[in-house]
Write a protein that binds this DNA or RNA. Structure first.
Lengths: 209, 209
DNA sequence: ACCTGAACACCGTTCAAGT
DNA sequence: ACCTGAACACCGTTCAAGT
C-alpha cells in the first residue's frame, strides 16, 4: 500500500478512501486483468476456441507483472470473469454438462495461470580441479547448487552423515549449503570436470568461480 | 514465525537456527505434505490410476489446514514430489511423451490443489416488507450480499448513480455496501418476499434480520 | 470529496550475547 | 548446540483532523 501510494504521490492512508482494504484492491486488480484479455472470436470448433482462449489468457498473464500471483490470490474473480464464461460455453458445445464444463474451465485456467514457471536462467559453472570456493555475502545464509545429471551425490563430495551439523546437505538433485553464520566462505568439493548449473536466491550474490 | 515459535515455547529468533528463513520453512512444509500422500497401488489402467492419485492428493490437501495455500506458495516442490513422478509415469503409459505428461500432470495437480473452492456456506435470509436493517460491527467496513437470481438490480433498491459516494454498489451479482465509516448501521432496501443468500467476510458479524 | 500525520499492532529477520 | 532480548526495517490499517 505504501509503495503504491508513493507511486501516486499520495500517502498510504489516502488509499483507504478509495478502497476498503488491500484485498479489495487485489480484487479490482484481478478484475482488470481478466477484463483485459482479448477474447478471440468464436468459430473453428470448441477445441480451437479453447486453445485460442487459453493462449489469450497466457498472453495476458505474461504481459503484466505479477498478474499470475494476483489471479491466484483472488481465485473467486476467475469464476466471475467473461473468459471463464466463454470458455465454459465452448466446452458445453463440446457436450459437457454445466458442472463438468465449469470444472474443466477452472482446470484449464488454473493451469494456464499457475503454469507460468519462474524460468530461472541458470549460469553454467565449470569446476576446476580441487574444491570450488564460494564467497557468501554477509547478508546471505546459504547457496544452492542444482546439477543437470540426476546423481548429485556422485558429483559433489559431502560429509557422509545427513545431520543438521553438516555444512552441506544433498537432497535429491540439489545441494544446500548452510549454517554459514558469521563466516564469509563456504566450500564445496566438486569432482573435476563436472559442470554444474548454479541457481541461487536473488538475495545472494556470488563472487569468484 | 512468532506464532509458530509461541506454539513451540520458544522465541521467534530461535527458529532461524533450524531454518534459513520463512520460505525454507514453507518448502519443508510443502515437502511434508507431498510426502504424506498415500500413493494408491498401481494397476487398473492409467485412467484409474490418475483418478485415484488425484483423489489421494485432494484428500491430503483437505486433511491439513492451509495445505492448499502452502502448496500454491511453493509450486517448485510439486515437480520434485513422488506423486508428480508417479502421475507422470501413469500418463506416459497412456502414450504421452515426457513433456506432455509433465504438463498434464501439473495441470491435474494444480487443479486438484487450487480447485478446493472456499465453499462458503451461505445462510438464507428472508426479506420482510420494507428496508432490511444491517448492523455492522465497528471493526468492519462493509457487507456483501449475493443473490441467487441473476438480476440483482431487480432485487435490491440502490441509489441510481454508481458514483463512489453511493452507500451501496451493485456489481454483477453482488451488492457491496461500503463507506460506513464511523456509522454502525447500513441500510439496504430489499424487495418484499425476496430471498437472498448472504455471505460476508469472517471478520464481519451480522445482527438482526 | 479527498488527503494527511501520527499512531497501532503487527510482520520477517539479524546479531551479539548467553548457557 | 541451541536459545534469547533487543533492535531494524518494514507491513496493513485506523482515526481525528485538515482543506
Amino acid at each position: 500500500m505504501r509503495a503504491l501510494a508513493d507511486k501516486l504521490d499520495v500517502k498510504a492512508a489516502s488509499l483507504y478512501w478509495h478502497v476498503r482494504d488491500r484485498s479489495e484492491l487485489l480484487d479490482l486488480l484481478a478484475e482488470g486483468i481478466l477484463q483485459g484479455i482479448r477474447r478471440p472470436r468464436r468459430g473453428g470448433g470448441w477445441r480451437d476456441e479453447v486453445v485460442a482462449m487459453s493462449a489469450a489468457v497466457r498472453r495476458r498473464v505474461a504481459a503484466q507483472k505479477d498478474a499470475d500471483r494476483i489471479l491466484m490470490e483472488v481465485p473467486e474473480a476467475l469464476g466471475r470473469s467473461d473468459v471463464f464464461k466463454a470458455l465454459a460455453a465452448s466446452l458445453r458445445t463440446a457436450g459437457l454438462r454445466s458442472a463438468e464444463a465449469a470444472d474443466v474451465t477452472l482446470m484449464v485456467i488454473a493451469y494456464t495461470v499457475a503454469g507460468e514457471a519462474p524460468a530461472v536462467e541458470p549460469a553454467d559453472v565449470r569446476a576446476g580441479a580441487g574444491p570450488a570456493s564460494i564467497a557468501i555475502d554477509s547478508g546471505s545464509r546459504g547457496v544452492m547448487l542444482r546439477a543437470g545429471p540426476p546423481d548429485m551425490q556422485a558429483l559433489i563430495r559431502v560429509p557422509p552423515d545427513q545431520s543438521s551439523a553438516a555444512p552441506a546437505v544433498v537432497r535429491g538433485e540439489q545441494v544446500v549449503v548452510r549454517r554459514l553464520r558469521g563466516v564469509g566462505r563456504g566450500e564445496i568439493e566438486l569432482n573435476p570436470d563436472a559442470t554444474v548449473k548454479m541457481t541461487m536466491p536473488a538475495a545472494n550474490r556470488l563472487r569468484g568461480p
